[in-house]
């Protein structure tokens, strides 16, 4: 995968706009089974990345991703910070290790595994991993961006039926069932935004 600096800057702007638009919805989801701040947390993170988009976009892709991850970690706090941060830092490091990152799918797999280790969590725990796993599987399968986005959306929805085993929602026990996980929701939103951009600007 090759991304020009302009693409990366545009993607950052897009993700930031997407989170901004849905921030209140993410916080509302988090209010139901968490502490109601997921929208604010994600906004803060994306604003910080957006503020540094020019210098980030000037870096090679692996370094840019790692830098985005670090900015997220140092600005979000809460659970989302270390998780999204680990995802991007590890993805960047993985791509860098592969020497300009030809195998994006393999790097993503390792990054998702690092997220799971950081969160001590796995599939079915009702977290953003329940979106990351299927998205990664579709990428391995080289599915079309539109299909990946749809998968992400339905994966997020499927967290409704789950009982949370990690994160704040897990303290609710069975009361967590019936609500969509906010982290899964933000993850699906970002996936769809990125896929939409890629479908339009770099048809694979």
């Amino acid at each position: 995968m090759h991304l020009a600096a302009a693409d990366l800057a545009a993607l950052i702007a897009l993700c930031r706009a997407e989170i901004d638009r849905h921030g209140a919805h993410l916080s509302a989801l988090d209010s139901a089974i968490g502490d109601g701040d997921h929208g604010a947390n994600m906004r803060r993170g994306l604003e910080a990345v957006f503020a540094e988009r020019d210098s980030i976009a000037r870096l090679p892709l692996p370094a840019a991703l790692e830098k985005i991850g670090l900015v997220l970690v140092m600005n979000i706090g809460g659970a989302a910070g270390p998780l999204y941060g680990t995802l991007l830092m590890e993805l960047g490091r993985g791509l860098a290790a592969q020497g300009c990152g030809e195998d994006f799918a393999a790097a993503l797999e390792r990054a998702v595994a690092a997220v799971a280790r950081r969160g001590r969590s796995g599939p079915g725990d009702k977290t953003l991993l329940d979106v990351l796993y299927p998205v990664q599987a579709e990428i391995v399968r080289r599915s079309a961006p539109g299909h990946i986005a749809a998968c992400a959306r339905s994966a997020a929805q499927s967290t409704q039926a789950m009982q949370a085993r990690r994160g704040r929602a897990s303290f609710l026990g069975a009361r967590s069932i019936g609500h969509e996980d906010p982290g899964a929701s933000s993850c699906a939103l970002l996936t769809a935004a990125i896929c939409g951009y890629l479908a339009e600007h770099r048809p694979l």
């Binding site: 502490d35 109601g36 701040d37 604010a40 947390n41 803060r44 970690v73 140092m74 600005n75 979000i76 706090g77 809460g78 659970a79 910070g81 270390p82």
Partner: peptide, 11 residues
């Protein structure tokens, strides 16, 4: 201290 109800960041 982090933001309200949000852990501080590692830095």
């Amino acid at each position: 201290t982090g933001h309200v109800f949000t852990s501080p960041t590692p830095d």
